[in-house]
Computed example of a mutant assay.
Amino acid sequence: MSGFTFGLAILGALVLAAVVGWNAWSTRRLAPRQAALAERVEPGEAAAPAPEPLEPVFDDREEAPLSLPVPVPERKPGLDALIDAIAPIAIDAPVPGEAALAALPGTRRAGSKPFAIEGLNEATQQWETPQAGQRYTAFQAGVQLANRTGALNEIEFSEFVVKAQAFADAVNGAPEFPEMRHEVARARELDQFAGGHDAQLGFTLRARQAAWSPGYLHQHAARFGFVTGAIPGRMVLPAVQAGHPPLLVLAFDSQAAMAEDPEQTAIREATLSLDVPQVPRHEQPFARMRDAAMGLSASLDGVITDDNGREIRPEALDVVGADLELLYDTLESRDLAAGSPQARRLFG
């Protein structure tokens, strides 16, 4: 072999090695980032909390001693004249709870609106959902005036009347129904108010370069208190009060979460959302949302964008926070404070 041919062979080998090396580097650079082995998050588990990269937002409860009592589930809210059309049902003699339960309709809705029957407990003198072993001296039937499906209409009100009358007949009661046109008008006004003050905020976290694996995303989100939700591809920041909706939701591609080998799937974006009327103001949900968005975007090498892919700067987040304070004030002036039982029902 001549020296010239030998030199070409060496040059070709070097070029081939360079190409192979470049392809390997590119593949590794673009592969989904993996969770650290010491902190890898398995499906259904949350990583152990680590120090948060940003200064956390505390409320008064977080200053309490570490031995906090176990949260007690909130009592299910009853009918409320503010958001329900209510029909009192008078009875001549106390009715056992078993009889009341047997008389309840098969469904608890009138159209798309929640329907409920409550009894006045003879012993406690409190309104409650009928229970076996109790006796009731009066009843009331109610239907919600509005929710996110719209206002109560005439057909739904008529269905409410039919169901309430059937229950009253079964317990030998006499119902007194409110005037339909008045209640439908109230429903429309309440729905109009709700439509103008319903805020559901969402930020999108997008990867700048390398995508994320589900475990990598879980690992970083766990540092901000997020835990795996019941739905694949969903993590939540739990509420302090048991039974309440989560403070925040972090969602990503559910197909990636359910993949046969999720760690080899690529996630390029995740959505951080806050349902404003569902979360109490004192929980400082927007401050936590802002800090989580900024912290996650930094640790994941991502960027915060709106639904149209435009980057959201930190100063813009502060403006949103100021606008929310005005919304909170308006809701409270209507006795529909964010996170209250009435607001959670109306905006549900």
Rank of each mutant, 00 (worst) to 15 (best):
P114W: 02
A93F: 07
I86M: 02
L120E: 13
E98A: 14
D80M: 14
G97D: 11
L82H: 07
G97T: 14
L82I: 08
D84A: 08
E128H: 11
A81W: 13
G106Q: 10
A103K: 03
T124Y: 13
D84W: 08
T124G: 14
L82R: 10
R108W: 05
G111P: 05
A93N: 13
A102E: 11
A110Q: 00
P105H: 06
I86V: 00
L82Q: 09
P114E: 08
T124A: 12
W127F: 06
A110L: 05
L104S: 00
G97E: 05
I83H: 04
G111C: 07
A103L: 04
P96T: 09
W127L: 13
L82Y: 07
W127K: 05
D92S: 13
D80Y: 13
D80F: 11
P105D: 03
I89T: 01
I86D: 01
L82K: 14
A103V: 05
E118P: 01
I117P: 03
D80S: 15
R109P: 02
A85Q: 12
A102Y: 08
Q126C: 10
A93Q: 07
S112R: 13
I117D: 10
A99V: 09
L104M: 00
G111T: 04
F115Y: 08
G111E: 06
A102S: 14
A110W: 03
P114D: 09
R108H: 11
I91H: 01
P105G: 05
A116R: 13
A90V: 08
L82F: 03
I117N: 01
